Each structure stands twice: as structure tokens, then as C-alpha cells.
Simulated scan of single mutants.
Amino acid sequence: MEFSPFNSVVKLCLQGMAMEENGKPEEASRLFLQAWNEATEDLEKFLSAHFVARCQKNTAEQLQWLETALQFALKINNDTVKSAFPALYSKIAKCYEDLNKPDKTKEYNELSASFNDTPSDKGPFYHGTKADLQVGDSLIAGGNSNYQTGLKMNHIYFTAIVSGAGLAASLAKSDAPERVYIVEPTGAFENDPNVTNKKFPGNPTRSYRSESPLKIVGEVIDWEKAAAAEVQKWREKIDGNKGEIIN
């Protein structure tokens, strides 16, 4: 499965995070466990186990849930979860350190350090916007942010999930039609630091950014669009977000 903020298990995790932010850890724990119990796909199991783990007060139980999350991540082992491995291994190492198991601590710290944080994703890649562009045009950095007024972006952003690009298009500040373009990076790119290992482990949205232009090579004509009510919720969440954008 592809990551989607509209997936029922992902929604439960988001609700749990909101409870944590509101100082309601018991309610958060209940929602994360509900997400685990309702999860059927490997990605759902990985994400929910990760959140259940961080609610555990006992180190041994936290380790058990982290290792469960790792098992599902290893089963998936694709670009949806690869960026989560360094932090996941590091958290497991910390549990072993707290349990006074130096050999295991060393093993998992070395596993964490062995990962290169350069994305290996081969795409295809997409960019969502309301700009009317043509195949052969280039998208360049320096545009206005849709998420923070007055901010000029130093990078151009894109994703390997078409529905994610579609959501970005729907959130763009314009009344023009939503467009999702198929793009090719013309230079190096990195995991988007605004989402990677922030709310969710790793970069499950497969969101990236580059200082180099993106070349438009096609357009997606039809994609599964989010309901208007869901888009409005995202707009309200963005408007209420006080965090700084890593630019």
C-alpha cells in the first residue's frame, strides 16, 4: 500500500498525535493501540507499532514494540520505509543500552550508522500545483510557500505518490484548476526535512526537494482526489501550524 493521510489507520495515528500534543497521553495510547488492532497491511502495522512503542513506560516493552515495527519495516523494505531505519535502529540501541546489554547496543548503533541518507527512490515523481504549464517546462525554486505567508522557497518539492501531489495541488493558493505533473529531477535531491522523521517515522510520503529544476515530462489527468471536507481540514491545520519551515 501507499501511505495516505486518509487511510483509516493513519488517521487514528494522527488523532493519537493530537492527543499527545494536548497533554492526553492515555487517550493517545488508546488510539495508537486501536490503530494497531485495526491494521492489516504491513505499512499500517509498522506505523502503528512505532507509535505504540513510544507510549510504553517499561523499556523492555518499548523494545518489544520497536522490534515489532522493525520486523514489518524489513518486510516492506522499499522507499516508503528506508529512511526510517537509522532512527529505528538508534531507538532500539538506546533500549539495549538502558537494559545494560552493550553488545546489542553496539550492534544496533552500527546498523544505524551504516545507512546513507541519500534517497534511492527512482520515481516516477509528481508535483502538484495550480499553475498551467506544458511538457518541457521547468519548475524552479523561489516560489511562494503555500504553507507560510511571505516565504520564498529555496527548493522545489515533489513526491513519488500521486495522491500526495494531488493534495498539494488542492492546497495551492489559487482558484485555478488543480494540476499534477510528472517530473524528472535535473540534479541531486534530498528527503524533505519538514516531514522526514517528524510526525511519522522516516519519509513514508516519499516527499523530496531539490535546489535544481524539475523538468515536466507529462501530466496525470485523473487521480483520486480528496473530499472537500478533508481538504478543508488540512487547510485549517496548515493555518494553525506555528512551526518553522525548514527552508
Results as ranks from 00 to 15, higher is better:
Glu2Leu: 11
Phe3Ile: 10
Ser4Asn: 13
Pro5Lys: 07
Val10Ile: 10
Lys11Trp: 09
Cys13Gly: 09
Gly16Met: 07
Met17Gln: 14
Ala18Asp: 15
Glu20Thr: 13
Glu21Thr: 13
Glu21Leu: 13
Gly23Ser: 14
Gly23Tyr: 14
Pro25Tyr: 07
Glu27Met: 10
Glu27Phe: 06
Glu27Lys: 08
Ala28Glu: 03
Leu31Cys: 15
Gln34His: 10
Glu41Gln: 06
Leu43Thr: 12
Leu43Asp: 14
Phe46Thr: 12
Phe46Arg: 13
Leu47Tyr: 08
Ser48Thr: 07
His50Leu: 14
Ala53Val: 06
Arg54Cys: 03
Asn58Met: 02
Glu61Gln: 04
Leu63Lys: 01
Gln64Val: 00
Gln64Lys: 04
Trp65Asn: 03
Glu67Cys: 08
Ala69Val: 09
Gln71Ala: 11
Phe72Ser: 14
Ala73Gln: 13
Leu74Arg: 09
Lys75Gln: 11
Asn77Tyr: 06
Val81Lys: 09
Lys82Asp: 13
Ser83Pro: 08
Phe85Lys: 13
Lys91His: 09
Ile92Ser: 08
Asp98Pro: 05
Leu99Thr: 02
Lys101Ile: 06
Lys106Asp: 08
Lys106Asn: 08
Glu107Asp: 06
Asn109Pro: 11
Leu111Thr: 13
Asn116Cys: 14
Asp117Leu: 14
Pro119Asp: 08
Lys122Thr: 15
Lys122Val: 13
Phe125His: 05
Tyr126His: 05
His127Gln: 04
Gly128Tyr: 08
Gly128Phe: 05
Thr129Ile: 03
Lys130Glu: 04
Ala131Lys: 04
Asp132His: 03
Gln134Leu: 03
Val135Gly: 02
Gly136His: 04
Gly136Glu: 01
Leu139Val: 00
Ile140Lys: 06
Gly143Thr: 02
Asn144Met: 02
Tyr147Asp: 02
Gln148Gly: 00
Gln148Lys: 00
Thr149Pro: 04
Lys152Glu: 01
Lys152Val: 03
Asn154Ile: 01
Ile156Ala: 00
Tyr157Gly: 01
Tyr157Arg: 03
Tyr157Asn: 01
Thr159Trp: 07
Val162Ala: 02
Ser163Ala: 09
Gly166His: 13
Gly166Met: 12
Ala168Gly: 08
Ser170Gly: 11
Ala172Thr: 11
Ser174Asp: 08
Ser174Gly: 06
Asp175Cys: 11
Asp175Ala: 11
Asp175Met: 13
Glu178Pro: 13
Ala188Arg: 14
Ala188Ile: 10
Phe189Ile: 11
Glu190Gly: 15
Val195Asn: 12
Lys199Tyr: 09
Pro201Glu: 05
Tyr208Trp: 07
Arg209Val: 05
Glu211Arg: 01
Ser212Tyr: 05
Ile216Gln: 00
Val217His: 09
Gly218Leu: 06
Glu219Lys: 09
Asp222Phe: 12
Glu224Lys: 13
Ala227Tyr: 15
Ala227Gly: 15
Ala229Thr: 15
Glu230Val: 15
Gln232Met: 14
Asn241Gly: 04
Gly243Val: 10
Gly243Ala: 07
Gly243His: 06
Glu244Met: 04
Glu244Leu: 01
Ile245Asn: 03
Asn247Asp: 03
